[in-house]
Design a protein around this nucleic acid. Structure first.
Lengths: 162, 162
DNA sequence: AGCCAATGGGTTATAGAGTAACATATCTGA
DNA sequence: TCAGATATGTTACTCTATAACCCATTGGCT
């Protein structure tokens, strides 16, 4: 049983972006928090593709995109907001950020990260989260967040080697 | 079924250190790599307790310990060596390093990290590694490294709250 | 022994990631 | 419309990590 993740396949990425931004608007509206221009623009840039982006890359993109030059704190504040709202995840091993395809649903941060193409595939495996919780519980540990970052080669890139 | 991890209990820590250093010496000898004074000293400092240490903290400790002032590259080279030999792990979410209690045995980097006391408990759960491998395989992903960093409260600190 | 190639470590400078502190602007609701 | 809260701009700085270059030590080898 092998299914290629959408992030690794040719797909209508405009659709990804559109859905993500719509979901973000809905969520923020329902929560009474403000998805400002800046925050929306940062989220949109992060969704340009399925590769995690660093904060400084994002700053450059903002500068190029519309002659808007922002300093680090501005970007980090936008990122903090998006993180708090669950609209993006942080990939620790890369010091980078990536859009969350299912904000609103409570879930953990589990990723497969391809070292060749840079794509990060978010996993949705409640059974895995559950097992991690169980292991922690067995040692008397109270879990607050889980960060699973699996590095290697995605299906496309592994195939390219052969 | 709940067993307090050794890192969270009062224990003869000299024993931890001694064992870790002995294991490191054996491993390096058998592999024909050089565990130099500097590398040994860094490893020893990392083993002072069960809390991950940052590279710059380590530098200060080196300076205090024996008036040996080292610049960042020196510490990072030692850390790189220890990482390569599997003698320490890197905790991405903390930008810090911690001793590995079972170098030599091939295993993944799975940790429970207490935000209160700072202790990081290394898990040894082959079943968990296996399940992660399986999930990755199902999406056609070839795993090279796994990094699981679970944050929360260890048994001691959770108890202290109540 | 004496040489030399390889490895390890020292030094300086700089890149990359993130935050503190304070000023200004913009929204929102009474 | 005014006041308080929220959001953004600005400057300066801290922390983390690496590049580039040079010197010292080590461990074979003849």
């Amino acid at each position: 049983m092998e299914h290629t993740p959408i992030a690794c396949s040719h797909h209508d990425h405009d659709h990804c972006i559109h859905d993500a931004l719509a979901a973000a608007r809905d969520l923020c509206l329902s929560r009474g928090v403000r998805l400002t221009d800046l925050r929306l623009q940062v989220l949109e840039l992060i969704w340009q593709n399925h590769k995690p982006l660093g904060a400084y890359t994002l700053m450059e993109m903002l500068a190029k995109a519309n002659t808007r030059r922002v300093a680090p704190p501005t970007v980090y504040r936008a990122l903090d907001f998006l993180l708090e709202q669950g609209l993006i995840h942080r990939i620790n091993v890369l010091n980078a950020f990536i859009g969350c395809p299912s904000p609103g649903t409570k879930h953990q941060s589990h990723f497969l990260i391809c070292r060749a193409c840079g794509v990060a595939i978010e996993l949705d495996e409640p059974a895995l989260s559950q097992q991690i919780l169980q292991v922690a519980k067995d040692t008397g540990f109270t879990v607050e967040t889980q960060a699973l970052e699996v590095s290697g080669l995605c299906g496309n890139c592994a195939g390219a080697d052969a």
